[in-house]
């Protein structure tokens, strides 16, 4: 019953280790640990340098080490780090919610209904999702000034959210449609006999079943704004409005703000929650990527 027992049985099942195999195994271990070092060393440097009080504006590796939180203090007091965090989270959450809202409807409609123009628009969706996101960069900035003239309260961040969510509609619709397709339509029939209307079928039956896929879509839409540098760097101009990626970048390029250890501290704080998220949900995230394979 217990796991140990199983393992014991499994071990004794293996053919005995030959000398050649032993050598190969040793080489394998050496390679594996070597690569562990390659991965861990730079990441460890981020951690070390963020806590090393013995640094000025530049990072020093080796040399005297003094534990200190002064870089974190600087980060919170002298930079807009908190603003960036809040901006990024707001943008990420709004993107995820908006994407879910759009995609639930389209995914369901495309999977379950046969309507005129369905084939044509599906083809269009497939084409659209192959067009890289950077194609529109020349127009975005000016587009925002036009929209904000019509709708006065329309900020650049809102526009960013719309771009993220709107850009994701095509690909995510396709993913969700595929997932709903795999659910037997007899469930819909049963629900209809039980008294559900169009929207109730989705809300009460389909949505709970596709929740794993919705979670993956929401998760990727949520992570996207954390990782993207291109779009915010085009649209956002005020450092207070920056997201984490654009904000932290100012700490290493801008001569006036230059403060590498503080960047390491900010990077560390940003990375930790995302690492936890990735490790906890790696299976779902990978499967999400795999199902959206065409997006690249």
């Amino acid at each position: 019953m217990s796991k140990n027992k199983e393992k014991g049985l499994y071990l004794s099942d293996r053919p005995p280790l030959t000398p050649v195999k032993a050598v190969l195994l040793t080489i394998s271990y050496i390679l594996l640990f070597f690569y562990v070092f390659i991965i861990v060393w730079p990441l460890a440097q981020i951690v070390f340098s963020s806590f090393n009080g013995n640094q000025g504006e530049y990072i020093h590796v080796g040399g005297a080490y003094q534990f200190s939180l002064k870089h974190f203090k600087y980060l919170f007091q002298e930079t807009y780090f908190l603003n960036w965090v809040i901006n990024t989270i707001v943008i990420a959450v709004a993107t995820a919610l908006l994407t879910l809202l759009f995609v639930s409807f389209t995914g369901y409609a495309y999977s379950r209904y046969r309507f005129k123009g369905r084939k044509a628009s599906l083809m269009a969706i497939m084409l659209i999702q192959t067009i890289p996101a950077f194609v529109g960069i020349a127009a975005y900035y000016t587009m925002h000034s036009i929209i904000s003239a019509v709708i006065p309260g329309f900020t650049r961040q809102m526009f960013l959210i719309l771009i993220y969510a709107g850009g994701g509609i095509a690909g995510n619709t396709f993913i969700l449609k595929g997932y709903i397709d795999s659910i037997s339509s007899e469930l819909d029939d049963a629900a209809r006999i039980d008294g559900c209307g169009n929207l109730q079928v989705y809300r009460l039956i389909i949505m709970p079943i596709v929740r794993p896929m919705l979670a993956i879509i929401a998760l990727w839409s949520f992570i996207g704004p954390f990782l993207d540098y291109l779009m915010p760097s085009i649209l956002l101009s005020d450092p207070k409005q920056y997201t984490l990626a654009t904000g932290l970048y100012t700490l290493i390029t801008d001569v006036r703000n230059m403060h590498q250890p503080v960047f390491a501290a900010g990077g560390l704080l940003t990375a930790i929650p995302i690492i936890i998220l990735f490790i906890a949900l790696q299976k779902q995230l990978v499967s999400g990527l795999a199902s959206g394979a065409v997006k690249g």
Partner: peptide, 12 residues
């Protein structure tokens, strides 16, 4: 460990 380079935001 091998997952880390993917999990840490690339820009960092």
């Amino acid at each position: 460990i091998y997952l880390l380079p993917w999990a840490v935001p690339a820009f960092i």
